[in-house]
Amino acid sequence: MELDREVAEIDTQITREIGDINLAYMLLAQKLVKQDRAEAMFRLGISRELADLLANMSLSQIMKLAASTFLLCSFRLHDHPVFSAMGDEKESLMQQAHMSILMAARRINSEKVGEAA
């Protein structure tokens, strides 16, 4: 019984932490979209439709969505070239440029795949 209670407490803590991350992410995403939609779409890796939706969400809608048990944000560094770009460059500006090119290419490729479907 003690082990079950400890597992339940850990699950509750993780759920609360996911909610905190979700809320912070959603508020930041909305702020970015309201400041500069095109840049936010690039930085967040989201579509125009999602950017429009984010910009128009109320605080209560954001809070309700943030309460999800699923993490709403995700890492976009899914492949080796992107990870290697982070550590190979010694110059910060060059590293940022390299990352931007790789991320833009991924976005263009994903949009082409979406158009073909």
Rank of each mutant, 00 (worst) to 15 (best):
N109R: 15
Y25V: 04
M26T: 03
I18N: 01
I14F: 02
A117D: 09
D52H: 05
S47G: 03
A24N: 03
A104P: 01
I18V: 15
A66I: 02
L53K: 13
Q30G: 01
I14L: 09
Q95C: 13
M63C: 08
S60M: 12
I18Y: 02
L102G: 00
T12G: 09
A67W: 02
M63W: 07
E9H: 05
L28H: 12
G87W: 04
L54Y: 06
E2A: 11
F83S: 12
Q13I: 11
L59N: 07
I46M: 00
K64C: 03
A24P: 00
L54K: 02
H78M: 09
V7T: 08
E39Q: 12
L50G: 01
M63N: 11
Q61F: 03
K34V: 02
R37M: 10
K90W: 13
A117G: 13
V113T: 14
K31M: 11
S84Q: 14
L93A: 15
M41W: 02
A105Q: 14
T69I: 07
A97E: 08
C73F: 06
T69G: 10
A104M: 14
E9G: 00
A8N: 05
A40W: 03
R43T: 09
I108K: 09
F42M: 11
T15Y: 06
E17K: 14
E111D: 14
L77C: 11
E49V: 13
E6T: 05
S100I: 11
L72R: 02
K90A: 11
Q61T: 05
F83V: 15
